[in-house]
């Protein structure tokens, strides 16, 4: 089913000094889909993600989110828009001066949406959603990398966002933990029905979590299509990336695009 685009990225260019990172990226993200932006490390995927939430401003081009161009709106409007977003950062970006529970509750507390027992209850609920019940008193330094990513997801969904952005969610994790995070992304998508953008260089993760995949190459979108189209395309950039990557073989336990949402992780 074709849904309306909630995010439209049009001809976005960005350079850092002499280094041209984005060279005219054009991409649309549809309502309630999971779009995976795939590409090798350093190709500008994370930079693109930061543009969507207004953490970076493009040199040229527009990014329209829910009808508003984030490159042109005021800080107050941008903050209002950000309330509908949740972002999971590559290194989790947990505030190390706060416990796990305080991290998850921070957006709710700061925006004065909840306080006291109600806040604690919602924090516990979000932690339970990511499989970390009873960990609210722990400090970020006391938990593993995989747990940090899950706390970051719990924090990202604290405000029940319409759009969730994942920056390299499985990077730096062992295969078992990476698989758990992949399941969690699908599970969260299933429960919240949010629009998700997953930036990754992990082909398996891309095929497992995504409805559609966009491959970035040399600062541009070289391919855009469903996970099945990715598997069958003759696109040169895809072929090059796959040849260097680790595409799951046919018959592997979890085939691309064939995910059982009820399977526990």
């Amino acid at each position: 089913m074709e849904s309306r685009a909630v995010i439209r990225i049009e001809d976005v260019w960005k350079s850092f000094g002499d280094h041209q990172v984005l060279r005219g990226v054009t991409l649309s993200v549809r309502n309630a889909e999971t779009l995976v932006v795939l590409g090798p490390s350093g190709c500008g995927k994370s930079v693109l993600l930061k543009h969507i939430i207004g953490l970076m401003r493009p040199d040229r081009g527009s990014i329209v989110v829910e009808g508003k161009d984030v490159t042109r709106i005021s800080q107050a409007e941008l903050n209002k828009l950000r309330m509908n977003f949740g972002m999971v950062f590559q290194g989790a970006a947990l505030f190390d001066s706060m416990t796990v529970g305080q991290n998850v509750g921070l957006p709710l507390r700061e925006h004065r949406l909840l306080k006291g027992a109600e806040l604690d209850r919602l924090v516990d609920e979000k932690l339970e959603m990511v499989g970390l019940s009873g960990t609210h008193h722990l400090w970020p330094s006391e938990i593993s990398g995989g747990m940090k990513k899950r706390v970051a997801l719990a924090r990202a969904i604290a405000l029940d966002p319409d759009v969730i952005l994942y920056d390299e969610p499985t990077t730096g994790l062992d295969p078992v933990m990476a698989e758990q995070i992949n399941w969690l992304i699908r599970d969260t998508q299933h429960k919240l029905n949010a629009t998700s953008i997953v930036v990754t260089h992990d082909l398996h993760s891309a095929c497992f979590t995504g409805d559609r995949v966009a491959l970035m190459d040399d600062g541009k979108i070289a391919f855009e299509g469903t996970t099945d189209e990715l598997r069958t395309t003759e696109n040169e950039a895809v072929q090059n990336f796959v040849a260097r990557g680790h595409i799951p073989l046919p018959g592997e336990s979890r085939k691309r695009g064939e995910c059982d949402l009820d399977e526990p992780f």
Partner: peptide, 21 residues
């Protein structure tokens, strides 16, 4: 440290202004 570990970006992304906070 907060800047290089993206904690300040995370704060911005949550619509909490780092200058205010």
């Amino acid at each position: 440290t907060m800047r290089v570990t993206e904690q300040i970006d995370a704060m911005d992304a949550m619509a909490i202004e780092p200058v205010r906070y």
